[in-house]
Structures are given as structure tokens and as C-alpha cells.
Design a protein around this nucleic acid. Structure first.
Lengths: 233, 233
DNA sequence: CGGCATCCGGGAAGATACTG
DNA sequence: CAGTATCTTCCCGGATGCCG
């Protein structure tokens, strides 16, 4: 008789999940594997294709990305869709419920921004930058503003709409923008906003500003990071 | 002998960490490993000792728990503390910043409660139950209430204070409670609250109610789960 | 080129046993 | 009670190769 490993291998429910009715535990069953949340983050501003996801997440390997996409699709977080001709490419898109995960990123980000070990000098994807705007805006400061701002980051374009104390961000064109920022990588804009380096970065040539310069100065003053641990609010 | 410990953990650019300035990514660097968030969850209502953590997290092995506690301590999320005599036991306690992670559990839980694959029949720790109260309370329904309720869950005691539309929960005595629920496991109370089974569970002997029964009926009506995916709000 | 499937090495997680 | 020690299993990361 093969009395080999009858342990728990046979029990499929037991091995790799938390068996816990707690909502947070179930969330971790779905998105707790390595890279899963970052894949979702990169899809928060609209569908992307496999290769673009890989490019946004340096460090993820193709097979892991495949596994995560399969798992997230099986759990109803995203869907695989084929664009109509002539594009005819395959893209991955969050489901409506998948898009509802944004508050998870906001609470994680707000909490970790206070971490003593957070290093803001690391690279930042354009998507992360846009999501940080939505998270870190100080509503009262933006209350009276209604403006459209364009961003060129590498070869991507983003349209940012400030209105009613909030921020909308979308990938794509920004014909109606009254101000356009151009830069190579998202970290530049993060330095302008969160380290008050707008003027210095423009002088250094890392950031180009076209259009309403008063709005540019105003925009970068709308945001505020939570204080680091040990520093009082 | 000491040359055994050539930890590659020090290599900054290579292994296992997302290299991403995004706050959410940094949060995952800290709490993204398996079990880390659940360990923190079990500490959200106050310090616990190693063995109690293990008991609350069936499935975690001792060595993994040791590693998580070390990692979380190194990142300033919790501290190891020795209780003064005569208890003289070692406990783990969240730092103030560690306690600030509660919104992470709330957003994760609220999101996952809508999941099509969520199974509320799994076991639920007492801590999870208390945190679900804090998350799922409908403020308007609780607005006019000020009451103290005691819970005996297994051999643990919890004091729950409903006031100003919110819930405070703490481990420990509840001398001033006007109502006491007694049960073996937290899942019973979850059934009473979230599946409207209060009367049935009491009749079945799974739940004992002492004190203000009107308050008991009122209490279980204060909470509401978000609708499942596919069902309208 | 985009989207995987496959194979491999190393390390993290899991189970069990053991110690101060 | 509070963890080590050890061994096994499995996942992650990287490279390669297939197929439309």
C-alpha cells in the first residue's frame, strides 16, 4: 500500500489558504500572493496588455505574471479581453469590483508613507504617481479649483482633472489641458510635488512646464504626505 | 561558525523586495509576506504572547511566526516586551504606528466581503469578530446608542462599547455591561449578526444571552455587509 | 512580437521534533 | 511557555523555447 504522504496533500482546502472567515484574510487569499496587488495597481487607470504590465513591473517574471493574471481572473478581479481589429491585441482589465479595490491602495500607501524605512528615491510608475495624487490631495486646498492638466511621462500620456477637491486621472489624450508637464519618469514629478522641488527640477531640465505656470505652482501645493513616524502631525 | 550567517538579505538591489517608491509597494515590503497581516490583526486589540498568537492562527508554524515577529519588529510595527512580575511573560505589542494599520484591515475586509468566493462559514477569531463590528457598523443606526456589552468567546472576554455611532472593543473585563453574549467560537456571533440568526442560534444553544434582550436585538441590527458582487446595493 | 509552457536553482513556507 | 532545529514541499525568479 502506498502509505506515502497521506498527510494533507490530499486536502485541497488546507494547503495554501488561510482558513479564516475574516474578510481581510479572504482578501489575502485573493490578492496576497507576491505581485498580485501591484498587477492590480497597474490596471487601476485602465486596461493594459501583458507586455506593458511586464514593463511597468521590473522584477516580475513572465510566468509569475501569467499565474497572477490567471488567479485574479479566476477570482473575478480582472478579465482578459481581446480588442477589436485592427488593434486585435489582448488586454487585461479590472472588473467593476476590481476597480473598487482602490481604497486598499490608498490605506496601504498612507500607512506606509509614515514608515521610517520608506525610500521615495526609488522609481515610481506613472500609475503610482496618479494614484498618489488621488490619495494625498488635501481637499480643502483644492476646493475652488477646476482645471485639466496633462502629463507626458516617458511615452505615456495622462489627463488629470482637478475638481471639487478631488482628482480624476486617466490614461490618454488631454486636448483640453491648460497646463502640461513633461518628464522622463514619474519620480521627477513626485520630487516636484512631495519634496517641493518644482523650480529646481525645471531648472535642471528634468521637468518641462508648458502653459499656465501659476497653475503649476498651485498644483504642486495641493498635496501633503502624512508625517513620518516620530514626527508630530 | 559565525561565517555561516552570510545573509544575503543585506543585498539591497537584488532579492525579494519590490523596488518601487509607491507607498502601497513599500507597505507590501513590510507586511506583504505570508501571515504578516494576520499576525498584526491578532494584536490589534492589545498585546499577546507567542503561544496565544499561534493558537489564534491555526496553520502558522512556529518558525514562520518567529520570522514574522522579527521582521515586523525590525520595521517598527511591533515591539517585544516582558511583562513585570509576577506575570513575567513575554508579549508582543503593536507600536502606535502599528495600531494605525487598522484602516488597512477595514478596506481589505470591506472589499473582500463582496467577493463571490467568500465563505463566511469558516472559523473566525474573536479579534476578527470585534474588528468586523468596527468596520461594518452603520453609523446612523447606532447614532443614539450608548451601551456596554460583554462577550465571552471560548475563554476570552471582550468589552464592547457602542457610542456616538462607533464601536470600541477591548480584551478584558466588562463589569459595567448591561448585556452579555456567551459562545464557544466567534463564528456563532457572526451568524447572529450577519445572517440574522440570533434567535435560532440561541434556541440551538450555541449562544447564551444574559441581560437586556431588547439591546441584544438592537445590537445585531446595527451592522450590514456590503452587497455581493452582482447584487445591487 | 505577444502570450504563454517548461525546466531549473534557490529560498521561503509547512510539519514535526526537540530544547532551555 | 517560547521558541530552535531539521527536513520536506512548494513557490518565486530567470532562462529558454514554442506557437500563433
Amino acid at each position: 500500500m502506498q502509505l506515502e504522504k497521506i498527510t494533507k496533500k490530499e486536502n485541497p482546502a488546507s494547503r495554501r489558504w488561510y482558513e479564516d472567515a475574516c474578510g481581510a484574510a479572504h482578501a489575502l487569499d485573493i490578492v496576497g500572493e507576491r505581485w498580485a496587488l501591484l498587477v492590480m495597481r497597474e490596471l487601476m487607470l485602465g486596461p493594459k496588455r501583458f507586455t506593458d504590465l511586464r514593463a511597468s513591473l521590473p522584477g516580475i517574471s513572465a510566468n509569475v505574471l501569467t499565474q497572477r493574471l490567471e488567479g485574479l481572473e479566476a477570482n473575478g478581479v480582472l478579465t482578459k479581453r481581446r480588442l477589436p481589429p485592427p488593434v486585435s491585441a489582448q488586454v487585461y482589465e479590472l472588473t467593476p469590483w476590481g476597480y473598487e479595490s482602490e481604497p486598499i491602495f490608498q490605506t496601504l500607501g498612507r500607512w506606509a508613507a509614515r514608515s521610517p524605512t520608506h525610500d521615495p528615491s526609488l522609481p515610481l510608475t506613472a500609475t503610482s504617481l496618479m494614484m498618489s495624487f488621488r490619495t494625498m490631495i488635501v481637499r480643502e486646498r483644492a476646493a475652488g479649483i477646476d482645471a485639466v492638466i496633462g502629463f507626458r511621462i516617458g511615452n505615456e500620456s495622462y489627463r488629470v482633472h482637478v475638481h471639487d477637491g478631488e482628482i480624476d486621472a486617466a490614461r490618454g489624450a488631454f486636448d483640453d489641458a491648460s497646463l502640461v508637464f513633461t518628464m522622463d519618469v514619474g519620480a521627477v514629478m513626485a520630487g516636484a510635488v512631495y519634496a517641493n522641488q518644482l523650480a529646481a527640477l525645471e531648472a535642471a531640465g528634468a521637468l518641462r512646464i508648458e502653459g499656465d505656470r501659476t497653475l503649476a505652482d498651485l498644483f504642486v501645493s495641493l498635496f501633503e504626505l502624512p508625517p513620518k513616524v516620530g514626527q508630530d502631525a
